Computed example of a mutant assay.
Amino acid sequence: MTDTLDLIALVLILAGALLCLTAAVGLLRFRDVGSRLHAATKPQILGLLLICLAIALALESWPVVAFLVPVMLLQMATAPLSAHMIARQAHRNRTIDERDLLVDELAEQERTPPAAGG
């Protein structure tokens, strides 16, 4: 049974490393902010989750799982929030191509004064 778990852990680590590599390549290759944010958050989080799962399977220890669960939860909570803040700042700096946006809710908020109630 240990050999099977080690093989599954190896496959998970390789898949997670491949996802992390694609996230890094995406950050270097993509040109606009939106594509870079997509590359920085989605494959990176999934890669980390796969690697943490592989570590938990390989070590077969509850203290390790208790350590890895908060790591995964914090990563899932902070990566989307930081991507949202970066995208919002890029919109305010006008570095996002507005032709690529289907709906621009921030532009609507900028046109409506805060005290107007809308």
Rank of each mutant, 00 (worst) to 15 (best):
K42I: 10
D32C: 14
M72E: 10
G34F: 12
L106T: 01
A40L: 15
T78D: 02
I55A: 14
N93M: 00
A116H: 02
R31C: 10
L81C: 03
T22V: 13
A90C: 02
L21F: 08
N93L: 05
V33K: 06
I86P: 08
L50H: 01
V69P: 09
P80V: 03
A58P: 00
N93H: 05
L46I: 12
R29T: 15
L68A: 11
P114S: 06
F30A: 13
P80T: 05
A79N: 05
A79S: 08
A40S: 15
K42W: 09
P63S: 12
R29D: 15
L102S: 08
Q89I: 03
I45L: 15
A24D: 05
A116K: 03
A77S: 12
A54D: 02
F30E: 12
P114F: 04
A23M: 09
D100H: 07
A39Y: 07
R31G: 13
E110G: 00
E98P: 01
A90T: 05
A54N: 05
L74P: 00
Q109M: 10
D104V: 02
D32K: 13
I55R: 05
Q44E: 10
A77C: 10
L73Y: 00
T22H: 01
L49S: 08
L27G: 14
A24F: 03
M72H: 00
E105V: 06
V69M: 09
A115V: 02
P80K: 10
P63W: 11
E110I: 01
N93T: 01
L106P: 01
M76N: 04
E108G: 07
V103P: 01
A107H: 07
I96N: 01
L21D: 05
V64S: 12
T41E: 14
A83N: 09
L48F: 10
R99P: 00
I45V: 15
V33L: 15
L68C: 07
S82M: 07
I86A: 15
G26Y: 03
